[in-house]
Structure formats: C-alpha cells, structure tokens
C-alpha cells in the first residue's frame, strides 16, 4: 500500500518536472538561440546543417551593431521614451489611482470603467486617430509624442493596479497624518506612497517593460533616426537583399539586457508587490 502511494507520487513528480522542463526549454530556447547566433561568424549562421553550438566565437556582431549602425541612438531613444512614459504614468497615474481609491464623486465609476474600455480596443484601432492627433499637435516623430501615446494605453493598467495597492493602505493612517499636520496630498506622499512602494515599483516596472518593447506604435509614429526606438530600428535593418542575422541577434541581446537587469533588481519587490496587492495586505 505504502509503496504504491510512494510510486504514484514519484510518477506524479516526474510528470510534473517533465512538463515544467519542457515549458522552460520552450520559453528559454529562442533566447539561447539568439545569444548563440550573436556569437557566430556570419558564415557559420546560414549553413547546410544546423550548428547549435558555435565552433568559433566572435564578438564582431556586437562591435558592428554598436559602431557601424545607429543602434546606440536607438537605444538612447528607447531609454528616453521609456523614462518619459514611466514618469508621466507615475505623476498622473498615482494621483488618479489615489483619487479613485479615496474619494467618491460623480462619474467616478464611469471614469474607471472608461479606463478599462480603452484597454479593450485593439491597438491598431487606436493608431490612426492617434496618428492624426499627433500630426495635428506637431508631436509626430518625436520622443515626447511616442511617450504620450504609450501613456495613453499604459496609464489605465498603471492606475488600476495601483488603486489596489492604495485600497490596501488603511484610511485611518491618513486621518492620523492629517491630524498630525499633513495636508491630504502630504498624507498621500508621506504615508501612503511609502506603504505602496512595492506596488509603485511593480507597476512602474510593468509599464517600463511594455514601453521598452513596444513596436507597433513606434513604427507608425516615428519616421526618423532622431526618435526611432530599438525594436523599429532592428526591424528596419532587415533589408531587401540582406539579412544580417548575427548583427540582429546581437542587437536583440543588447536590448533585453536593461529589462533583465531591471527584473533582477526588483524581482523580489515585484513579486511581493503583486501578491500584496492581490490579497489586500
């Protein structure tokens, strides 16, 4: 009896690990493949038989993309656009989420629902009106314009996530702070924001990663090297007659480094933040 149940458990464990490992390989393989490709010589990439592990390692692809293309500018643009988006979300989204969480006013529910509805439209549908709007105000092909466009669809996510964190912070704390000498805004900044710090970090990272990786809006709303971001820049390197796989792979690897670093730094806070919001403290 005991051996049967032990055997069943063992089989179950093996099955679990098998599924998990398969999934992990499935997720990681493209990344590893890109990384390996970026280290190969051009001649070793397109071969008759697939060569997984490179026989000769070279960093030429990295040197090439960094020195012989506009890649540094693309990365810089992405940095600026991402930072601006996060900043815009932080300033407006924090205030909006706080107001949704704490005040009851006419139209509050409708506004919150409106924020959600925006997320329901496919991005393609939003691009044309946004394009016309940006052209009208002269923000087409500018980093600020792109950041504003990102804010338009990332802000709802930011506000809804952060509202959950604010809801979890006891209202009595603010009452105490107001009696202790804070204004409403002061109580929010001094008492509630430090409490919702994990939530702020988690939501900001979400927004940052989404803005950093975004492709479609960037493709449509930017036209020149001065404002183009890295995903668009990389795509445009694919020419009609040439496909520089090694360089593209190197560009891809460079581009995901900031995301990986960000994740590594905030991983603990982020997981804590997400679960804290989920179970309300």
């Amino acid at each position: 009896m005991i051996t049967t149940s032990r055997r069943a458990r063992l089989a179950w464990n093996i099955a679990t690990y098998a599924v998990l490992i398969t999934l992990t390989v499935f997720c990681i393989f493209p990344l590893v493949w890109t990384f390996l490709t970026s280290l190969k010589h051009e001649a070793d990439i397109v071969t008759q038989t697939i060569q997984y592990i490179p026989t000769r390692i070279t960093f030429d692809n990295y040197v090439a993309i960094w020195t012989q293309s506009g890649f540094p500018t693309l990365v810089m643009n992405s940095f600026v656009v991402t930072a601006t988006t996060v900043l815009l979300c932080l300033i407006t989204g924090t205030l909006a989420a706080y107001s949704f969480s704490r005040f009851h006013y006419r139209g509050r529910s409708a506004l919150m629902l409106g924020y959600l509805v925006i997320r329901m439209f496919p991005a393609v549908l939003m691009i044309i009106p946004l394009f016309i709007l940006m052209r009208g105000v002269g923000l087409l092909d500018s980093r600020l314009g792109l950041a504003l466009a990102y804010t338009s669809f990332l802000l709802p996510l930011f506000v809804w996530m952060l509202k959950g964190f604010f809801d979890a912070a006891p209202k009595e704390l603010e009452s105490a702070a107001r009696i202790d000498g804070c204004t409403r805004l002061g109580a929010m900044v001094r008492i509630v924001l430090p409490l919702a710090r994990n939530g702020l970090v988690a939501t900001s990272v979400f927004v940052a990663i989404a803005a950093w990786n975004e492709f479609l809006f960037a493709l449509m709303l930017t036209t020149s090297q001065g404002s183009r971001t890295w995903p668009v820049g990389l795509q445009l390197m694919v020419g009609e007659f040439q496909l520089p796989w090694g360089v593209l792979a190197a560009g891809g690897i460079i581009s995901i480094i900031p995301v990986m670093i960000l994740f590594a730094i905030v991983q603990r806070t982020m997981v804590h933040g997400i679960t804290a919001g989920a179970v309300k403290g």
Binding site: P170, L173, A176, I179, I191
Partner: peptide
C-alpha cells in the same frame, strides 16, 4: 486622536 487600529505609520 487615538484610533481603534492605532494607525501607527508602519
């Protein structure tokens, strides 16, 4: 004011 939940700043 002293609150029921103490409302100490965590």
């Amino acid at each position: 004011m002293v609150f029921q939940s103490y409302a100490l700043y965590p």
